[in-house]
């Protein structure tokens, strides 16, 4: 089972790199980064696309509801 350690590390490292590329290229992610930078996570296009999906579930961070 310990073999999974190396695999997990590879996945994580790969995910962070690929994630960075997607953030750079995908317009919705770019918009979301801009919204986060302005301090309102729920103003981004990704949150907007999810508005009708479980609408009762909101965004919480560290117990503070925004």
């Amino acid at each position: 089972m310990e073999r999974g350690v190396r695999l997990l590390l590879y996945i994580l490292a790969g995910a962070l790199v690929i994630g960075g590329v997607v953030l750079f290229l995908h317009p919705d992610y770019r918009g979301t980064v801009r919204a986060w930078a302005s301090g309102d996570i729920t103003a981004g296009p990704i949150w907007e696309s999810n508005r009708a999906y479980y609408p009762e579930t909101g965004w919480e961070e560290g117990g503070d509801e925004h």
């Binding site: 994580l12 790969g14 995910a15 962070l16 690929i18 960075g20 997607v22 953030l23 986060w36 961070e61």
Partner: peptide, 12 residues
């Protein structure tokens, strides 16, 4: 949340 954004961008 920022780490989550990176990971889920790749997961997308």
């Amino acid at each position: 949340p920022l780490l989550a954004l990176f990971l889920n961008a790749a997961n997308w």
